[in-house]
Every structure is written in C-alpha cells, then in structure tokens.
Design a protein around this nucleic acid. Structure first.
Length: 216
DNA sequence: GACCAGGCACATC
DNA sequence: GATGTGCATGGT
C-alpha cells in the first residue's frame, strides 16, 4: 500500500471509531435523497429537515406530485431551507430532465452507466459536482466519492491535498487510493461531514483542531 | 448583530 | 482561468 492509501484508511478508521456508523443518507426514498441533495446546498441540514417535513406533511414528496405543484407553492413549502427561489428552479429543472428523458422514473435514470448518469445530472442547471455525486452515491448507490467543503478544508489542513485542488482532483485522489466500495464511500463522506460539523468551522482553529489527534 | 451552513451559476476582468 | 457576487433561512 502507498502512503496515501495508508493515510486514508487510517483517518477513516479513526473517524469511524470516534463517531461510529452515520447511516446516510437520512431519507426514506431515493427521491427524497435527490430533493434533500438540492436543498442542502450551502445550507444547514436542520433547515433542510423543516422543508422536507413540509413536503411530507402535504404528501408531496414524489416526482409526479412535485411536478404538478405551482412554483410559488413549492417555494413557500421549501422556504425554511433558504435560497428558496433558486432551489425551486433547481428542483423544477431536475424534474424537467427526469420527465423529458426518463419518463419521470428515477429507476430508469439510475439505470444508465455511471459516467452517463453523472453527465446527465451535471447538465441540469443547479446541479453541480457535489449534488450530482451525492445523488449518484446515496440514491443510485454507485461508488463515487463525494467531495465537499469539509473534505477540502480538513484534508488540506493536514497536507494530504492541496487547498487549491479542484473538485475533480480531490475526488480522483480519494478514488485512486481507496477501493471502489460504495459502502466505504458512503460512510467516509458522512464521517467527514460529522467531523466538520463538530470542529472544523473556521480557519484559525486549525492549530487547535482536535482532528490532529485522529490523524497524527 | 455577526457569522456560518453537506453549492452553484453567472458576470467580469 | 481566476476571482467576486447573489441567493436566504435559522442556529450559535
């Protein structure tokens, strides 16, 4: 094993030991994962939960129901998640793609091979690499590594990646140095988020960041 | 009241 | 290609 491989396994093991299984994604259906992935863009999950709860309460959390909903009504329901006007358009854009290209069926959409699925998702306005990969990993159950702000912050602080590395470069680093295991990728990303939520809020904390005791 | 959160698109240079 | 800005609510 290379030193990068050893480091990534070591960090994973330490995170798992510290935080345990995260059981991601917190959703009842694949469609809920998709909506949650869009709603959580640059947003605290606690706010997303309120928006999802609104949709669930009205029994609207399905592709068909949401598609039939007026945009102002959708915006009103997802309001607690913030950026609600933009997110309304993004959800709509996803649904447009889902219905025009896959007959409204997530199952059909997820059947295409991994790179075609990723390209299709990235082609939707409002779905960038992290949202696309979250959908692919946590809804389509395919092995892609999800990179987020915490991943960059934590791993660059520990000199494992460069802070200026692109999304694709960081993703490649993880996927080149870990087995392509969707269970592992699922848990690893969730653990990184859990660590980030707990301690890695602002840059100046780096020196006293408790992650040091996990990594070093 | 400031700062942040599981991003992304778009404008401008 | 790099850098800056708008989008918005709710918790600390």
């Amino acid at each position: 094993m290379s030193s990068s491989q050893i480091k990534l396994f070591d960090i994973y093991n330490k995170l798992y030991k510290r935080f345990g299984s995260q059981n991601w994604w917190p959703a009842d259906t694949d469609f809920e994962v998709v909506i949650g992935a869009i709603l959580t863009q640059n947003t605290a999950w606690s706010n997303v939960e309120k928006a999802i709860a609104n949709l669930k309460k009205k029994r609207l959390l399905s592709a068909k129901k949401l598609r039939a909903l007026k945009l102002v009504r959708l915006a009103e329901l997802i309001r607690p998640s913030g950026y609600y006007n933009i997110k309304t358009k993004r959800i709509r854009a996803f649904l447009d793609c889902l219905f025009s290209d896959y007959n409204g069926s997530l199952k059909k959409m997820f059947k295409s091979d991994l790179s075609r699925l990723r390209q299709a998702l990235l082609g939707i306005n409002g779905i960038g690499p992290e949202t696309a990969d979250s959908i692919i990993l946590y809804a389509a159950n395919r092995p892609v590594f999800v990179v987020d702000a915490y991943t960059r912050r934590i791993f660059s602080r520990h000199d494992i990646i460069k802070p200026e590395a692109t999304y694709d470069q960081i993703q490649r680093f993880f996927m080149d140095n870990l087995p392509l295991d969707r269970g592992l990728f699922n848990e690893y990303h969730a653990l990184i988020v859990e660590l980030g939520k707990n301690i890695c809020k602002t840059k100046p904390r780096c020196d006293i960041c408790p992650i040091a005791c996990f990594v070093k």
